[in-house]
């Protein structure tokens, strides 16, 4: 099981802030494919990966990163702090 978190417009588009799910994916990109295939709202949220960032266990990562040992994946748009 893996915790998947969504922030900002990704959260709004999918309609929930977090969920726990079972995945067969071995990379972030694989997980994205699984999510896209679930429902239209996921496909919409993940339509353009260049508009998204991903963090693995609260550390900024990349879509080709492996998921082995990861407990928490977060998807969000580019950050706008400061």
């Amino acid at each position: 099981m893996i915790d998947v978190l969504y922030f900002a417009w990704v959260r709004e588009r999918i309609g929930l802030p977090r969920e726990r799910l079972e995945t067969r994916a071995t990379t972030v990109a694989g997980l994205v494919e699984e999510l896209r295939a679930r429902e239209e709202r996921y496909a919409a949220a993940f339509a353009d990966l260049s508009a998204l960032r991903v963090a693995l266990d609260q550390e900024l990562s990349s879509f080709d990163a492996p998921l082995a040992g990861v407990r928490e994946v977060a998807f969000f748009p580019p950050m706008t702090g400061g």
Binding site: M79, G81, G82
Partner: peptide, 22 residues
């Protein structure tokens, strides 16, 4: 802080709300 701290700003105005783009 601007682009590596996980904050997201949303502007709320009279004509609606909009996420601030990086």
């Amino acid at each position: 802080l601007k682009s590596r701290a996980p904050f997201w700003k949303k502007e709320i105005g009279a004509d609606g709300a909009e996420w601030v783009a990086a």
